[in-house]
Design a binder for these strands. Structure first.
Lengths: 146, 146
DNA sequence: AGCAAACTCCAGTGGAGAACCGGAGTATAC
DNA sequence: GTATACTCCGGTTCTCCACTGGAGTTTGCT
């Protein structure tokens, strides 16, 4: 599972929203974009996808912005990836798919095993997990300088 | 780890060579290409890469062709993938890589874990394994018709 | 009511890479 | 010495991804 730039941006945006989940006030696209170094007009599209996917909700008008639609410990990274990559389904395929041979069937099978193996990793982490890991990591880094 | 078309073709070609490993006589590009439904002029390029990678050796002239350079039980699928994908290394990157944030560092870390997880699957299989699995699978399929 | 701040929809563009294709060259069995 | 194979290298076409732009809509605030 290669992360496309799009998916990574989406994850970063959701992590940013998770960080501010307590405040319960919307974050604007520009704020998220600036914080995570994402082109804002592009992020706009991704947030629209995430909204349709039920991950965020939007609040229009002045003082508007985006909020997490669910608790950050109830959103796994895999769900997010599926939402984004689900838009353009790309199974392992040759451009003009030839009649399958016994060998290609085997390769596909092993590919599925490898794929499932990496998906299980993304499945294992929620947005909150990542935020906590990040905080722990930063605490650790600070300790080095004491 | 998405398999590119190129890598899948290379794997299929090597599996084809593995199947004929006992005979110890070279297979020609056209034979392999026809058997596995691969454009022959394209396969030619891939075999050149595999030759430089030490997976096959070539024999020129009439009655020439390609042979496995090593025993099929000493070649893992991962080695082959690395050889092919190693040509154009593609880590998870944004087009213009922005200064990393704490979040992006975390995502990259989890990506590495997921990646390693799928690589370990490809690592687990050798060319011979796949040929044997394929034969076993076909035996099984035949039994259904008895 | 009216303005401005925000999101929303839709269409298009530029570049990069992947998958091929072709031709000229070179080695080798017979 | 010739036909048969591999070898090298360049080009072409096509698709997809990241990103941009503009016109429109919703909503809070005064």
């Amino acid at each position: 599972m290669e992360l496309s730039c799009k998916t990574e941006y989406a994850l970063l945006a959701l992590l940013e929203l998770s960080s501010h989940y307590q405040q319960n006030e919307p974050l604007q696209i520009r704020q998220i974009a600036a914080q995570q170094h994402i082109p804002d007009r592009y992020l706009e599209q991704l947030l629209a996808v995430l909204r349709r996917g039920g991950f965020v909700r939007s609040q229009r008008g002045p003082k508007g912005g985006y909020l997490l639609a669910r608790e950050p410990w109830k959103i796994t990274l895999l769900e997010v990836i599926n939402c984004l990559e689900g838009q353009n389904p790309q199974p392992p395929k040759a451009p003009v798919s030839p009649p399958p041979t016994a060998e290609s069937a085997m390769v596909k099978e092993i590919w599925l095993e490898a794929h499932a193996s990496s998906l299980s990793v993304w499945q294992r982490y929620t947005l909150e997990d990542v935020c906590e890991l990040r905080d722990a990591r930063q605490q650790l880094n600070l300790m080095y300088y004491i």
